[in-house]
């Protein structure tokens, strides 16, 4: 066979592969947007569910997810950023730092349902927080820790070495150098990672199954020790556990969840783009 014909065929096959990845994404989005739009109005977004979730809104689930995500970030961001600072600024190439990196890789790979088991074992039962926003937030926080650490590491590593040398040579201490000459310039990257972590936490179901999520709780949580509904779990419940839920309520819930997650990702992408454009070193 002619080599150029062969090349043409090969390229077409590869192009087809790419289409097979991307087209279904668009199809999924299109289906959910078209079918979900009709369910969404102000009352759907602001009212509590009624009549066994067949009617009313999904406000408690939206609010619950926001609480959980916020809690997860409050826990994971300080810990993740400090951890990245340790890896980039303090640790030297030795056994301990290799072990830390291996641990991070494995945390990123632990199945989400195992995080759920862990959260149940340690937060719900051992620390006796019960099934609560606190337990769920901490579990989600640990789950997104690798995302935050990895993004923060990349952000810190992208700050030129010269900034550190200049600051130290002016008599600043190591921490002052990190605080004033490194962190401010790594901030956009850390923020991007944080928003990606938010998106991840907002969409996860398995870690909150046994740690916080309530099946049907048509009132709002009042403290961090309360259970709460959450969007992804709500979608699971009304798709598989409760018969007779109108289709547009299910699609509407899926659309709200999808919009929340995609907007967070979009924000991260825009932020990253803006940052790269503005960067001057």
């Amino acid at each position: 066979m002619n080599v150029y014909l062969k090349q043409k065929i090969a390229f077409s096959v590869l192009f087809l592969c790419t289409l097979l990845v991307i087209v279904p994404v668009l199809v999924i989005l299109a289906i959910i947007f078209v079918k979900g739009m009709s369910a969404i109005d102000i009352s759907f977004l602001t009212e509590v569910p009624i009549k066994g979730m067949k009617e009313g809104g999904i406000f408690p689930a939206i609010l619950g997810t926001l609480y959980l995500v916020l809690g997860a970030v409050l826990f994971a961001v300080p810990l993740g950023v400090l951890s990245a600072i340790y890896l980039v600024e303090y640790s030297r190439e030795n056994f301990l730092s290799r072990l830390v990196k291996l641990a991070i890789v494995n945390l990123a790979g632990v199945p989400s349902v195992v995080y759920g088991l862990f959260g149940l074992g340690i937060f719900v039962l051992y620390f006796e927080f019960g099934a609560s926003i606190l337990s769920g937030s901490l579990t989600l926080g640990i789950m997104i820790l690798p995302v935050i650490i990895t993004a923060s590491r990349e952000a810190l590593e992208s700050v030129p070495k010269s900034f550190r040398i200049v600051s130290l040579s002016l008599g600043a201490s190591k921490w002052q150098t990190i605080r004033h000459s490194v962190l401010p310039h790594a901030l956009p990257g850390i923020l991007t990672g944080t928003i990606l972590g938010l998106g991840r936490a907002a969409g996860e179901t398995a870690p909150i199954l046994f740690t916080v999520a309530a099946f049907y709780l048509p009132k709002l949580p009042t403290s961090i020790f309360d259970q709460t509904m959450a969007l992804p779990y709500h979608l699971y419940v009304i798709s598989t556990q409760v018969p007779g839920i109108p289709e547009n309520v299910r699609y509407g819930t899926a659309l709200v969840l999808l919009l929340l997650v995609l907007l967070l990702n979009l924000a991260a992408i825009i932020l990253r783009y803006q940052f790269r454009k503005r960067k001057r070193w």
Binding site: V25, I32, G199, A202, G203, E204, T205, Y236, L257
Partner: peptide
């Protein structure tokens, strides 16, 4: 695609 929650 990576961003779409698994439940969706």
């Amino acid at each position: 695609l990576a961003a779409i929650p698994s439940v969706v």
